[in-house]
């Protein structure tokens, strides 16, 4: 069952009594204006109608924010245009330097790995230099692990890629677009126990064509 199906089921008003639905409180809760949102969330768990109203309120608040932000787009007056060009030039130089840094260091693979994590359990390896290695996710091996299950998700938590492997690394396939992702690993041991990693962040480069 996907995240979207779970959300849809949770917001299904079928069978809910809708007693105790306070639309003002729901609006304030969705806007993050309540000091203690716990009791209202407990009510949402029992009432699909209120859960649906909350989800709609959030969408309405995002729509209002977009409308309020829209007129604030500012076109610099002619006197400031030269300043804008300088900023644009500086940005272009920074992009150029960034691309050069990504492509240039042939010796980067010899750098010692940098591990990330809280030092307890599985740690993620980062620090590889070239573009191909940037799509390789790797981690500290777990003693007695017979299999690793890797999940790569978007920052909005949509599952982008899942893999099972006996190695302590995977290469994210080119079907997954470059950009920020989060990922985690579960190590399965022979005796059936599992070790779960923290959730790690990474920025995937676009796959080489």
């Amino acid at each position: 069952m996907t995240d979207e199906q779970l959300k849809q089921a949770f917001r299904d008003p079928a069978g809910s009594s809708e007693e105790g639905c306070d639309l003002d409180a729901i609006w304030a809760g969705a806007a993050g204006e309540l000091d203690d949102v716990g009791p209202l969330l407990a009510h949402l768990r029992t009432c699909g109608g209120c859960a649906e109203a909350w989800a709609l309120a959030r969408e309405a608040q995002l729509g209002a924010k977009a409308d309020e932000d829209a007129p604030k787009v500012h076109v610099p007056p002619p006197a400031n245009r030269s300043l804008a060009w300088v900023a644009l030039l500086a940005a272009a130089v920074m992009v150029f330097v960034g691309v050069w840094a990504l492509q240039s260091p042939p010796g980067a693979d010899t750098n010692p790995p940098v591990f990330r994590g809280d030092g307890d359990g599985i740690q993620a390896g980062v620090g590889q230099g070239d573009v191909a290695a940037g799509r390789r996710l790797w981690w500290s091996p777990v003693p007695d692990a017979v299999r690793y299950e890797v999940t790569v998700l978007s920052p909005a938590l949509a599952v982008l890629h899942e893999a099972r492997t006996a190695e302590s690394e995977v290469v994210v396939p080119s079907a997954v677009a470059g950009g920020p992702v989060v990922w985690r690993v579960t190590a399965r041991k022979q005796d059936g126990t599992a070790v779960e990693s923290d959730t790690f962040r990474a920025v995937l480069p676009e796959a080489p064509r």
């Binding site: 949102v37 969330l41 949402l44 859960a51 909350w54 989800a55």
Partner: peptide, 15 residues
């Protein structure tokens, strides 16, 4: 529980 409830009504982890 509350985090999951918020997630199911559309809020991401940051919110």
């Amino acid at each position: 529980r509350d985090v999951l409830t918020l997630y199911l009504v559309g809020h991401g982890p940051t919110e």
